[in-house]
Every structure is written in structure tokens, then in C-alpha cells.
Nucleic acid binder design. Structure first.
Lengths: 242, 242
DNA sequence: AAGTGGTCTAGACCACGGA
DNA sequence: CCGTGGTCTAGACCACTTC
């Protein structure tokens, strides 16, 4: 492997592996070649390959099974990996999602800027209801620029059960990283109040995320409103990707 | 280094380094011996030492400066490392803390169980007001069992500016890990409303944490109420420890 | 038994910071 | 200049899973 730029070798291996995944050389849950074999292909040692794969495992791109192999991880949503747990005690339940709709809207000024679009740009708005143990506990709104994700429609979203990162990846080759999450407590507006069966003005936990691709370009904006009367929200950590 | 248990070598190095830090062999912001030297002391190679130190850097116990050395990181509070940021845009401000008091209370049933104490056990309650740009935006309550932290008093808490992890570490030799955080949105009660200058019932972001020591024993329980009308809460990630 | 990830070594060289 | 962290190698062996 040639020494491009001044990046360490293992970083170049990271990039190379990523781009081969993007080229669909290895698909989800398919094993990569062994570390020693990859090393031969790339002209580096097994240890260097290992260090590169370590990074991608932490990033959640790959997962390993000892004695078996290294596999491409299916993309999954941050919210889907998080849990709703009682305040004390362990465990908690994973949320389930119910697709509400997928419509076009126009970006406001701030939203356009955040997503790197021009003002008034067309965005897809995907809305999902979040259920835990059957009860509606949250609402999620996901916004994607039509420019980057043309010809989206309800059917394609539904096929993947509303898994937007998976959709971006499979249909558009855009692999999303988990974005940083920001938290607020806000009063329920009418729309949320009706869907979540709470009074207008009741406190809701609001999660705001900007997801970027692996090149750092902002791609997807999402806002969720969660009812946390019964169960608290416990975010997924990057370590427990699988 | 003898092969105790069936732990890999580098994990034993991790434990050894941790216990030497606990024994105050190296103090905060003092450099450890070089990786090669540690390797000689422990009878392992530099690579193995490095892998061990990698873990402790991720955990936030150590930090490195290229070309200089590896240092013991001062303990700091999760909240103090987090930021309050506008919903869109970057940056954001670090919070400042104002110590309100330190009193004794009795543990309720649940709290006693979570902290592994008997019902009615005596706990210290440390309360802090959280300010951002001068404005009061939050209230934090920290609870520590008197049994594990005897002879605590306001003076000692004040000396360390309310930095509880630092207090536990310096005065009691208990090194706290960042606990998992759980989030809720709750209506402001009278006490919070008065201190934060909001109406009773206004939505507040509630953070609940159980911090454990490096042996996994629960040590400190803390609850914070945050006003997020203006700025959202952006939690510290374990990676950006320094 | 064979093949995979997981660990470890000894030795080498590079990049950086400080004297 | 030296000593530090940071990277890399070739080769070895172990632990685990699968056949």
C-alpha cells in the first residue's frame, strides 16, 4: 500500500476497507477475508490490518466473532439501539417503530443551513411513532434533502421498516455515522399531545441529531419527542453497537 | 508479569497501572515512566504496555502528549465536561457550578438499594447550582453514602469547588467511572422552579446517573434538573475526555 | 484438524517536543 | 540533540468455532 498523504498506514487501510464496503464488495453480515489475507492484499502486516479493523468496529461499521470472522454490520438507527428503562434497575425495553408518513416539505432558513442546502430546498420528512410495550411513547421526524436522496417514496421507506440509515446506505450509498445528540425538555404541542395522548404543555424529552456521512458532510436531521413519565431514555453507546 | 487468572497480559497491566495510581505512586498530571520502561518493569513488551495504556486513555484515566509523555488525568465531572449549545450551530458554553450546600439525609428504599446500602442509611447530599453565562440553568443533587465517605463536610467539598469525583479520589481513594446517564423530561417542582426562575410545571430536562468505581461497585447517585429553553444539553463523550 | 480472531514479542523506524 | 509517544513488521502462539 503506497504511502499517500502523510496518514499512517492503518488509516489508509481504514479508508480502503470503507470504500470496498461502499463498492459493495462485501455485503451486510458477510465476512471479510481474514486479517492475514487482507494484510497480503494490501501489502501490510496482520497487526496493521487489525488496528484498522479495530477502528471500524468501534465505529460500528464492522463486528467480529472470535474464531469465525469479521463481518459488515448492518446500519441501524441510534434510537432503535437505545433503551427505555425504569429510573432504578437495569434492563429496559427496546422501542418499536410505526411509520406514519413520508412527505415533502420546504426547508426553513436554519434547517437549510444546517443541512448545507439553499433556503427553501425540498426535504423529505419521514415521521415515525415510537412504541414501547405497545404504548405510544414518542414521535420522530427525520429530514433528508431531496437533492441528495431523489425519488424517495413511502414504499421504499416502508420496505426497510423506516430504518433510514439503512435506506440511505442501500439505495444511495451514503453511510451515516451516529450524530451527536442534543437534549432538551419541551412542552408538548398539539400534534405531539394528540399522538402521545398527553396534555398540551406536558414535558417531553426532545432529541435533536445531525447525522453526517463518513466524509463529514451533514446528511440527515432528526428530531424526536419522547414521553418519559414511565420510563427514562437511555442512549445507545457507540461501544455496544452490537 | 505472572499469568494470573486467564486474563490477557495487557489487562493485567491495566490493573497494575490502576492500582499504582491508586497507591499515589504517580499523581495527577505527573508523567508515568515511558512505555518501554514500564515494559521492562512489568516484564512485557512496549506494544503490550501501549495496548494497556490505550484502554486507560479511552477510560479517561490517562492522557498522552506526543513526544512528551503519558500523564495521570485529573478526575472531572461528567456535567462539567458537557456543554450547553444552541440547537443549530457548534460550540456552546461550559457550565459553571455554585455550591449550595452539603447536608445529611436518610436513604429511601429505592435509593438505598441502588447504592447497595441498608434502608434508611445516612447519605450526604451535595447540591449545586449550574450557571451558563451567568444565568441559573440547572440544579444538581449528588448523593454519597456516609459509610463509604465518612467525615465529609462543606469545607472539603468547597475546597475542590464541588468536584465530587475529585473529592472521592483524593480523600477516599475511590476513582469513579462516568456512569451511564438516563434522561427524562419532568415538570419543575417548587424547589427547582424557585432556584431556576421558572414556573412550577415548566418542562425541565432531568439527568440521572449512577457512578461506579473501577471495581463496579455503585458509589454515587446524582440527579440534575436543567432548563433547556435557550440552550440544549450536549453530553460529554467519553472520547473527548481531554 | 483447520481456520479465524486475539495476544504478544523483539526490534525497527518515524514524528514530535523540549533542552 | 535526545527521549517520548506513534507506527509497523514478521513471526509466534493461544482460544475459539466449525467441520
Amino acid at each position: 500500500m503506497a504511502k499517500l498523504s502523510h496518514q499512517p498506514l492503518y488509516r489508509q487501510v481504514v479508508r480502503e476497507v470503507l470504500s470496498r464496503i461502499e463498492a459493495a464488495e462485501w455485503r451486510d453480515d458477510e465476512p471479510l477475508p481474514s486479517e492475514t489475507e487482507l494484510g497480503k492484499n494490501f501489502g501490510v502486516s496482520q497487526g496493521t490490518v487489525r488496528k484498522a479493523l479495530d477502528e471500524l468496529v468501534v465505529e460500528g461499521v464492522l463486528y467480529r466473532r472470535q474464531g469465525v470472522g469479521t463481518f459488515v454490520a448492518g446500519t441501524s438507527d441510534f434510537l432503535a439501539r437505545s433503551r427505555f428503562t425504569p429510573l432504578t434497575g437495569v434492563g429496559g425495553e427496546a422501542p418499536k417503530f410505526e411509520l406514519l408518513g413520508c412527505v415533502r416539505i420546504n426547508a426553513g432558513e436554519q434547517l437549510a443551513e444546517v443541512l448545507g442546502q439553499r433556503r427553501g430546498a425540498v426535504l423529505w420528512q419521514v415521521r415515525k411513532l415510537i412504541r414501547v410495550a405497545g404504548a405510544a411513547v414518542g414521535l420522530e421526524e427525520i429530514l433528508l434533502p431531496e437533492r441528495s436522496f431523489p425519488d424517495l417514496d413511502m414504499r421504499r421507506v416502508r420496505e426497510l421498516k423506516g430504518n433510514v440509515p439503512e435506506l440511505c446506505w442501500r439505495d444511495y450509498g451514503v453511510r451515516l455515522k451516529d450524530g451527536e445528540v442534543r437534549y432538551r425538555a419541551v412542552p408538548a404541542a398539539q400534534a405531539e399531545a394528540r399522538l402521545l395522548q398527553v396534555e398540551v404543555g406536558e414535558p417531553l424529552l426532545q432529541l435533536v441529531r445531525l447525522s453526517r456521512d463518513f466524509d463529514g458532510r451533514p446528511q440527515v436531521w432528526s428530531v424526536a419527542w419522547l414521553k418519559t413519565e414511565r420510563d427514562a431514555f437511555e442512549p445507545a453507546t457507540s461501544a455496544e453497537q452490537d
